[in-house]
């Protein structure tokens, strides 16, 4: 048997007009939005191709980052559909692909650095150490995406 390969994507969701601050989303919304867009652009064939092994998880409200996993091959459908997404949960939004990796390890590396960078940026606005510790806890919490493995 040949093992199957995956592609992992780190994407950022920006609500139009509100590029800063938190964005609350339901866990399944991004998944639904991507499937809908693939249906529109690549039809039944595209949806059937990406269905197996496809997960999309919202990761962090502060940096509005999400994690997407697809099989290698049909990931092209997903990659081409993601930038075309215009709305999530009836809210206007733009989705940017930040990183595409072949292993979840590489993705975590990228994500860790990215979160750290953003954390430093946000820290400037905070005054007390307590707030900083809380923010760090929230931003560097990887637990909810570990299930993607």
């Amino acid at each position: 048997m040949v093992r199957h390969k995956n592609r992992y994507m780190v994407v950022q969701i920006n609500e139009t007009g509100k590029e800063e601050g938190k964005l609350k989303l339901k866990a399944a919304s991004l998944h639904e939005a991507i499937i809908q867009k693939v249906q529109q652009l690549h039809g039944d064939f595209g949806v059937a191709a990406i269905r197996a092994g496809f997960t999309a998880k919202y990761f962090n409200e502060h940096t509005r980052v999400a994690f997407v996993r697809t099989r290698r091959g049909p990931h092209k459908f997903v990659c081409s559909a993601i930038p075309c997404i215009k709305s999530i949960e009836n809210r206007n939004a733009v989705v940017n692909i930040l990183y595409v990796g072949a292993t979840i390890r590489q993705c975590f590396y990228f994500l860790k650095n990215y979160q750290q960078e953003k954390f430093d940026e946000y820290c400037v606005k905070l005054k007390t150490d307590e707030e900083k510790i809380n923010l760090k806890k929230e931003m560097l919490n990887f637990e909810n995406v570990l299930a993607i493995l």
Partner: peptide, 10 residues
Amino acid sequence: AVNQLFGEVA
């Protein structure tokens, strides 16, 4: 029919 099966791209 093409739109249904292969989407707008096709």
